[in-house]
Write a protein that binds this DNA or RNA. Structure first.
Lengths: 232, 232
DNA sequence: GCCGCTAGAATATGATCAAATTTGGCGCTG
DNA sequence: CAGCGCCAAATTTGATCATATTCTAGCGGC
């Protein structure tokens, strides 16, 4: 009897073919956090996201819940959700875990890589260097993540890769702070070492290159964090 | 087909203190997975949970999404959600990560423990041994998890603890299979070694005890899995 | 300065729409 | 004539939304 009429606002919520809206929102919000578009400590509101992404409330809620379990968002006791701020202890935990896991993934990638994957990685690294030259921080962050993510996919260890992804979500917001402070990085390029090791299928060299890359990255975050806390 | 399905599980779903429903459902479902009440490969339906837990659709949905990001549930391409089945490769990944992280947590716990924590741990271990004597698999699984979880809380490394929790969610469903096959475990008790190490604040001994415990546990899972796949 | 009050945001519900699996009927082939 | 497989209706399940309810926080009166 009650003739509810349906508005046609669903088109914008589902832009990409058939993917569920909650997945689209999840990926979008995830990228925003991962690439530092949301600053640490910033509040994330449901209604803000429904407006920004032109999505319904339910998909937004689900995305926020997932990212909460991902460690990318923190639910405060009172219904508020924020992007967590990284503490010094947090950096140490993340560094230990990254150093424990990511070299292992790099080593496995060296065992499993084929020429097609290697070409794709090299192309990605070229783009990455281009972004560094241009000083495009956004592109740098995105490509750097995609480079690592591809290495981990090649490693064919999905559980470990997902675990490491979770770690990236927690230092991602701080990475942009680092870049804002120091500009794009001008340290010895560990990606080149890693690519060499992968093309030689040299497991140990790949592990070492990745270890160095992680060490460098976490050191920069630690330093940026330390000088930031001095200001406060 | 009337309301006769409402049993004690409903009461647990609604302590109705002040906690939001989606959190209650999340914890309930999480425990069901962690303690093997849901078998690997089993489908998890949203409407089934709304009926079982007497909860609304939205909270159930959010709980399922969170557990998806926790790795405790897998979204199949076609909207279905199941408890993932552990593969042999998965066991190896989990074993590597657990051996990399959990000894570190045990070592940190040895550095930070106080007498009150130690007493609580000992009490938990007593209950655990009691459950083993009684052959109460459910209590054994629960107490074993709570013992480890308390050690990790003492370690004061929340990010690492959350990461390890995520791993437990992925081999939890298989643990009950192990127990169903071998009964409660009758191997050398690594918990006693760990308690000794913690009370002496001996970091290295704590790390070794935890390493042994993890090794034992994952070996049992691997063997149970191997003999199970032979049957199929 | 403290306490109730109001505004606004988050939580939760049930209805509605859409997709996917299941089922049942039909034709085809041996 | 019987068995097999395939297409389509039906049912089950998931996705989304609009709305009612509940809680937090800010604010004005006392």
């Amino acid at each position: 009897m009650t003739q509810m009429l349906k508005n046609s606002s669903q088109a914008a919520a589902r832009p990409s073919g058939k993917q569920p809206a909650h997945l689209t929102v999840y990926e979008n919000l995830r990228d925003q956090i991962l690439f530092g578009e949301l600053a640490p400590g910033q509040a994330v509101t449901i209604q803000g996201l429904t407006a920004q992404l032109d999505a319904g409330m339910t998909p937004v809620r689900e995305a926020i819940r997932r990212l909460t379990s991902d460690g990318a968002l923190n639910m405060m006791g009172n219904r508020r959700v924020i992007v967590p701020e990284l503490t010094e202890n947090g950096v140490e935990e993340l560094e230990f875990m990254r150093k424990s896991l990511e070299p292992q993934l790099a080593g496995r990638a060296a065992q499993n890589i084929n020429s097609q994957d290697l070409e794709a990685l090299k192309a990605l690294d070229d783009d990455l260097n281009g972004a560094i030259e241009m000083g495009d921080i956004g592109a740098y962050l995105t490509l750097n993540y995609r480079f690592h993510a591809m290495v981990y996919r090649i490693a064919r260890a999905p559980i470990m890769a997902a675990t490491v992804d979770r770690l990236w979500l927690q230092f991602g917001p701080s990475l942009r702070v680092v870049c804002g402070r120091y500009g794009t990085l001008n340290l010895p390029d560990k990606h080149a070492d890693l690519l060499d090791a992968l093309s030689n299928e040299d497991v140990e060299a790949a592990e070492n290159a990745m270890l160095g890359d992680v060490h460098q990255g976490m050191n920069q975050i630690r330093e940026a964090l330390r000088s930031a806390t001095m200001v406060n």
